[in-house]
Computed example of a mutant assay.
Amino acid sequence: MGAGAGLLLASALPSPRALALDARAFGARGDGVTDDTRALQAAIDALPAGGTLALGSGNYVIDPERSLRLRSRTRLSMAPDARLIARANAAPRAYVLLIEDVHDVQVSGGRIVGDRDHHLSTTGEWGHGIMVRGAERVLLRDVHITKCWGDGISVGGISGARVLPSRDIRIEDVVCTGNRRQGLTIGRSRNVRVLRSHFLATQGTLPGCGIDIEPDPGADAEDIGIEACTLRGNHGAGLQVYERGRRITVRRCIIRGNRGDGVLIRGGEQCVLEDNDIADNGLRGIVVRGGGRDIVVAGNRFSGNAMGLRRQKPQAMKGWMHVDVAKTATDVRVDRSNRFE
């Protein structure tokens, strides 16, 4: 996020001294049995602009078919041992937290636990921990999200008669682990920053990536920065850029031990992959397929990638296992500063 957007977010959000409401004052139990959706939503709805809902320790059962819907210029501040637990459901789309068509929102602390261990259907892939859709200036910080039927976090836009991308989204010091479809999906959006976060052990349905930048047809994702993150142990690629992604920078990340490629670019444009540790991935370290354009690969450290593929091409040069560029990709520069081990 640019300096201007960061200052705007900080100034619009409430200060720590702004009015704070206690969720238990609205009847929230946090006993792991009672459905606390109605009580917590009442607390959120009672917040004035600039207010904070403080969620103390406890296990708060949430109906993701209704979702907790956050409002503009409010904070949800959760204690480290506060957990939002998704009630088992069979809905095709269900979100624990929904941040839709609002602005200047912050969610910090606590844990979100999805229902993948108790889901009531075998189909669908949109059961997310946090859904950000058509929102502006949102900060997600210090949240641990696990066991969602779909994504830990999904950032996208509103489509239809009104088209509204999400803008100025910041995700920092977040952990998404053991989710079913993606740790993080970035769809229709502008200016998304992902910092010091971990996307781990995604498995269950395709694509199974740590991070997937994949706008819907007719949409795009632009100005994405991913820095100092860990993408490890995912069933698919660590990072996938699937068409219509532009101006994407991935810097100082650890991309290791994913079953698929470390980084898979399918139609992305103006991407910079710099100073990353890319190792021990089941397929290649970085793959740029046809349609990829204006890609820079510089200063990365590669080792141990594509062990299974080596048996298929024992005569191939060492670099092939780490960086594989399709002939139909254009303007791809693999700099001499990369290190291949």
Rank of each mutant, 00 (worst) to 15 (best):
L309S: 07
A237M: 01
A12W: 06
D81C: 00
F302A: 00
G208M: 08
K318G: 07
V192F: 02
Q270I: 00
E65R: 14
V325T: 14
E243H: 10
S166D: 12
R71V: 11
E65H: 02
G156R: 07
A23E: 13
Q312C: 09
L164A: 00
E125M: 02
Y95N: 10
G260N: 00
Q240C: 04
S154Q: 14
A279D: 02
L97Q: 06
R111C: 12
P215H: 07
G32L: 07
S303C: 07
V325E: 13
S11K: 13
C229G: 05
L98W: 11
S57W: 03
A279M: 03
V107Y: 02
S108V: 06
T249I: 06
I254V: 15
L19W: 15
S166M: 10
I171T: 07
R256L: 11
R251D: 04
D104W: 00
S197M: 11
D115W: 07
Y60K: 05
V272H: 11
K313H: 15
W320R: 13
V132N: 09
A18D: 15
S337I: 11
A90N: 12
V241A: 06
A18R: 15
S189D: 02
S154L: 10
D36Y: 04
A12R: 13
R111G: 11
R252L: 04
A42Y: 08
L47Q: 03
E243R: 12
L231C: 06
P14Q: 13
T34W: 00
R256D: 10
D142N: 06
R293I: 14
Y60I: 11
A46R: 08
L273A: 01
V175E: 12
G233P: 14
L53C: 04
A82E: 09
L139D: 08
E274T: 15
R75M: 15
I286P: 01
V138F: 04
V61R: 08
I112Y: 09
